[in-house]
Design a protein around this nucleic acid. Structure first.
Lengths: 161, 161
DNA sequence: CCGATAATGTTCAACTATGAACAATAAAGT
DNA sequence: ACTTTATTGTTCATAGTTGAACATTATCGG
């Protein structure tokens, strides 16, 4: 059970993932600073980007895409609506759902923010060849797929005794 | 300033990074579930792993390694000490610092938890060849280096007007 | 030696995110 | 038609994280 001798840091995949996690954490912090002058935080940007891409989505669908609880959306979205970045219109087919749209102001700010985010990412990955980036993307998307599938099925296959 | 036509999702590095961020988020959640039966959460594990590796470190050094504020350590560490996982002894050369050590119990739990974490990482990266993992690690560690350096120097080079 | 500056750890108020409980609506089963 | 079950969004209590202010101790400059 405990392979006492082989410490994790000698394990290439472990080291690799720790580096990934640390890079993510720092990118988040750096993005937060870069976005501060727009009075946006990373969660807001995530919302805006998804609305930019998938206009008319519902709050629930948005929460699923962002991997957060829907109560989170219920907190953030009304405040972004008051700020004039987004608009929430009730679906008339299904009176439960609220469909989300960017305002013109929201679209402008989103583009500014995406420019900043893209510049940051670009700068950080500048020495990674495109094909290597794509390879990384493939691995990560596979992980996302696996974990989202496991989330639905309660069977854990790890060392869970 | 706004290259309006090229949307970010056509940008390979952007797509790549989004995938990395999502994978990280899901890994965190999955790790939290896998660790639940030890009554540990990812932040606790991060602390334990670092103490396992760097015994006798101070709270401040630990906070730096974990990329969190030291107030965070001041919240978590006393509670872990009460639980008997760690021990805090004052440095007698410098009466300000508290040096951190694992107890025997803490060491055992840490090993159990690391086994779980390693298994999860391994399973997720199972189809990534070792050399590819190492390549990823190199990129990510470079990013960490760049961002930690920028954190110290207030000069931002991005689209920050 | 002494005053200024810096570093460590703690406390506290503010903010964020979460899951459970709930009301309203829809869909399914009978 | 009607009861049951599921889904959407909201509210609320809880927990986690942060930065600022603070006390204590070190370090540096004179």
């Amino acid at each position: 059970m405990n392979k006492n001798q082989s410490l994790p840091w000698d394990h290439p995949r472990f080291r690799s993932w720790i580096a990934v996690a640390r890079a993510c954490q720092l990118m988040q912090q750096s993005l937060a600073r870069a976005l501060a002058h727009l009075d946006l935080k990373p969660p807001h940007l995530d919302i805006l980007v998804n609305l930019f891409r998938f206009e008319g989505i519902s709050q629930q669908e948005l929460a699923r895409k962002l991997l957060v609880g829907r109560s989170n959306m219920s907190m953030l979205l009304p405040q972004m609506e008051k700020r004039g970045l987004i608009e929430r219109r009730g679906d008339r087919q299904d009176k439960r759902v609220l469909r989300l749209y960017l305002t013109e102001e929201g679209r402008r700010i989103t583009q500014d923010a995406m420019t900043i985010q893209t510049a940051l990412i670009d700068r950080m990955l500048s020495d990674a060849p495109i094909e290597e980036c794509e390879a990384i993307a493939v691995h990560m998307e596979r992980i996302v797929g696996l974990l989202m599938q496991e989330e639905r099925e309660p069977q854990e296959a790890t060392g869970d005794q």
